[in-house]
Design a protein around this nucleic acid. Structure first.
Lengths: 143, 143
DNA sequence: CCAGATGGTCAGAGTCTCTTACCATCACCT
DNA sequence: AGGTGATGGTAAGAGACTCTGACCATCTGG
């Protein structure tokens, strides 16, 4: 039995986590959010982010990011406000409903992480996080 | 600075690996393969796999899997043969061009893993693989 | 003030994925 | 044998996601 490549080994738990979060969000009343929207939403900074920032970090074009932010805005998860520092730009900010969904997903993530910790043991879970954080330095173009 | 959730930490290197593999495949002459096709292709077993198996393991419906296998077949990456054990089923097998693309991607994966090992150190790279393999037990429904 | 860079939108197309519905074959039971 | 439900697979249609190309408005630096 050949060992799986690390890419697939990373993907499997990622997908499991994502599935759990979306199932939990739907259960909590957030039925309309999609994975693609969430991948953009997740990267909105507390002060608000520009569309091009979100696009770069989510790894999509600015048109795609705009498309997804439009949907998030219509559904009440985010709002757009003018950027005081640049007349061309607008800042995408988490709106009230978005903040509630963040709370809900935070709880689900904590639950799943607890299950993983129970399986791996405290020590290896910490180690996993450390290694992944370290790996981020060479796999995440945005710091 | 709040720590990123483990889901995102898993996703970042996964995406980086995927991007490298597709860039390398394109460079090696395999321009037409898409990520969605690859996620199905990757799960074809050496003896051939049924469509429903591929669908389940890739986490898509059988219609989607069929759609992707059609494309892979037209492009010469896979072939379908009757399943001798079941008249309803056909086995999807890696065809000659598919085998060559596997070789190409194996080389790219090895290269990326070598870079990760250089960054993390041998020990942590081994550890990462072990932890992820262990985690697979509770995050991969297909063993 | 001008030229190029940057933030963003519009239009159109291609890809991916799902739901619903359906057909053929198989396994099992009587 | 015959029938019933499960399983392998396909068809049609719609929605979601993403891209390329073209464009406009504003900013920045000379």
């Amino acid at each position: 039995m050949e060992p799986l490549n690390v890419g697939l080994l990373l993907f499997l738990p990622y997908r499991a986590m994502e599935a759990r979060v979306f199932a939990g969000l739907a259960e909590a009343g957030f039925h309309d959010v999609t994975p693609a929207q969430a991948r953009v939403f997740q990267r909105i900074s507390p002060q608000g982010s520009r569309l091009t920032e979100l696009a770069a970090q989510a790894g999509v074009t600015k048109q795609t990011a705009g498309f997804l932010v439009d949907q998030l805005e219509r559904a009440g998860y985010v709002e757009r406000v003018p950027d005081p520092a640049d007349g061309r730009a607008r800042l995408v900010r988490v709106a009230e409903r978005g903040a509630r969904s963040v709370e809900a997903s935070r709880a689900i993530v904590a639950q799943v992480e607890a299950e993983w910790t129970a399986h791996l043991g405290e020590h290896r879970m910490v180690e996993l996080r450390e290694i992944l954080t370290d790996l981020r330095e060479i796999t995440d173009p945005w710091r």
